[in-house]
Design a protein around this nucleic acid. Structure first.
Ligand code: FES
Ligand code: FES
Lengths: 136, 136
DNA sequence: CAGTATTCCTACCTGAATACTAGGATAATA
DNA sequence: TATTATCCTAGTATTCAGGTAGGAATACTG
């Protein structure tokens, strides 16, 4: 029912990254899951997705685990969200012309695109560091 | 999959209100549905909800229909969204303490509340008039 | 008063998505 | 070779969006 809802997938992902950012060295999925109270197998999938998107680097085997592939200060929340849910798109017809029987100048569409811009600006102007730093 | 998705409910509602704003006198659900290409029975429910929320006034019977209960310039989009989908709440635990095992200072939660604030600001600073006026 | 146009109310249906769970294959280390 | 991890594929439960369907209540019109 919400206009925008932050899925558990994104919440878990962000918390896992926050955990990794405030720790030295790699952490396994099980470790993060235990520390954050997240279902382990579920988190595995999320971390795998973040790895595939290049936000994390993974190492298998003993003493393996995940680590950030970038400093927290260079990791925008927008990139995290897009890695987990793809591009943010407020409406179907925002994708391009032809998706809808209206024309390009459709005013409601413009309005929703403006909302997307506002959200994108918020998300791209904050980094993982901002999220874990109380001073923000 | 989207972080925020504008449901057809809201899109239809906004378009119906835009139609009413740019017209003299009342319009029936069937008329709006025909003009905007919206499923009639579905729109009925949406308009009923807007009426219950006080945004529309309705008259039954012949020559009845719906009309805005406020000038378009005084109707914020936020009020429309809240009428149709309730209060915007990014996460479950944003509702208050106790919804989650974290504490009030939980940083991710603060971050999401900041996003809600940004969205609320965008939506409450635009009125229905802004949506239908190309000059905006 | 009969007919017609309209809102209003309740119930139901369907496909898709979210939020998992389960079981194991693959790889790296010790 | 035993252990610890990631990686891969599949399945399931629940919820919700997006409708459909049918009719009851109400108001105007001739
Ligand atoms: S362009 Fe799709 S609703 Fe107007
Ligand atoms: S308060 Fe709910 S996730 Fe932190």
């Amino acid at each position: 029912m919400p206009l925008f809802q932050v899925s558990t997938r994104i919440q878990y992902g962000l918390r896992a990254l926050a955990y990794l950012a405030s720790k030295e060295g790699p952490a396994s999925a099980a470790e993060i899951a235990g520390a954050e109270g997240i279902p382990g197998k579920y988190l595995e999938g999320i971390l795998g997705q973040l790895t595939a998107s290049g936000l994390l680097r993974s190492e298998r085997g003993k003493n393996g685990g995940y680590r950030l592939s970038l400093p927290a200060a260079e990791l925008t929340v927008l990139s995290i969200v897009e890695a987990l849910e793809g591009e943010i798109r407020p409406t179907e017809c925002a994708a391009g012309p032809g998706a809808c029987d209206h024309d390009l100048a459709c005013l409601p569409r413009r309005f929703w695109l403006g909302l997307k811009t506002a959200v994108d600006e918020y998300l791209s102007s904050r980094t993982l560091l901002d999220v874990i730093d109380p001073a923000s």
